[in-house]
C-alpha cells in the first residue's frame, strides 16, 4: 500500500536520523560536556552557598563525575553521578530528537537545539542544586549543620525520587514536544485521512494505484 510505504519510509528516515544524531551527540557532548558540567556545578555551588549560610565552603571538581563537597564540620558528601549522566543523556536525546524531526529547516533545527541546550542548562543547575541540598541533609555526621526546614527536606526527598524515576526521560521528551510541536502534530496531519481524494467512491479503486478499494487503502 502506497500510504503505508510512505509512512514506513518516513518512520525509518526519522529513526535512522535519530540514531545518527545520537551517535554524533555522544561524540560532540563527550568533548563539550566537561565545560558544560563545570558551568552547571559552579552555578549550582553558588546557589547552594547562597541558600544556606551554614555551608561555608564548597569544593567542586567539575571535570569529574563525582564532586566532593566540604561542610563546616567537614563531613564529605558527594554529588550523585547519576545526575551527571542524566544531564549528559538529556543533552544527547533532547537535541537528537529535535534534529531528527522532519518538517524543520536546518536553521530552525539549530536554533531549537540551542534553545533546548539553554533550557536544559537551567534545568540542570536546579537539578544539581536540589541534588546537593538533598545529599547535604543526609550527612549523618552533622545534620544540624544543614538546617533546612522539614518541609524543604520533604520537598528535596520527593524531588530526588522524581529525578531518579523521570530525570532521564522527561526533559528531552518535553523539550521535543515543546519546541517541535508543530512538526510533531504535522506528522499526524500529513498521514492519509478520509477525503484525501475528493469525489472518489468508497468502493472505487484507490487512485494511488495500489489496486485496492479506496475504503481499504487511502480512504480508510
Amino acid at each position: 500500500m502506497c500510504a503505508d510505504l510512505d509512512k514506513k519510509k518516513l518512520f525509518l528516515k526519522f529513526f535512522g536520523a535519530l540514531i545518527l544524531f545520537l551517535a554524533g551527540g555522544f561524540i560532540l557532548y563527550s568533548i563539550l560536556f566537561p565545560i558544560y558540567s563545570s558551568l552547571v556545578l559552579s552555578l549550582s555551588k553558588g546557589l547552594l552557598l547562597a541558600s544556606n549560610e551554614h555551608l561555608v565552603k564548597v569544593l567542586v571538581k567539575p571535570h569529574e563525575s563525582v564532586a566532593a563537597f566540604l561542610f563546616q564540620e567537614s563531613p564529605e558528601i558527594y554529588i550523585s553521578p547519576y545526575n551527571v549522566y542524566y544531564s549528559y543523556m538529556n543533552l544527547v536525546f533532547g537535541t537528537a530528537l529535535i534534529a531528527a524531526t522532519p518538517g524543520e529547516t536546518i536553521r530552525g533545527k539549530v536554533g531549537k537545539c540551542l534553545t533546548a541546550v539553554g533550557v536544559l542548562f537551567v534545568i540542570h543547575i536546579f537539578q544539581s542544586f536540589f541534588d546537593l541540598a538533598y545529599v547535604s541533609t543526609l550527612t549523618g555526621a552533622a545534620p544540624q549543620s544543614v538546617p533546612y526546614g522539614e518541609a524543604f527536606r520533604t520537598f528535596l526527598r520527593e524531588a530526588e525520587r522524581f529525578n531518579g524515576h523521570m530525570g532521564l526521560i522527561l526533559p528531552p521528551f518535553l523539550l521535543w514536544f515543546g519546541l517541535c510541536h508543530n512538526s510533531v502534530l504535522g506528522i499526524a496531519k500529513s498521514s492519509p485521512k478520509k477525503g484525501k481524494f475528493s469525489g472518489i467512491g468508497r468502493n472505487d479503486l484507490c487512485p494511488c494505484g495500489s489496486g485496492r478499494k479506496y475504503k481499504a487503502c487511502c480512504g480508510r
Binding site: 536525546f93 510533531v184 485521512k193
Partner: peptide, 27 residues
Amino acid sequence: YVFQGLMVLFTFGLFAGWLFLYVRRPG
C-alpha cells in the same frame, strides 16, 4: 547507565512508531 539509556531510546522509538506509522489526525 546502559539499560536506562536503552529503555529511553526504546520508549521514544515506540511513541515515534505509533505517531509515524499509525496515527491519523481526525479530519
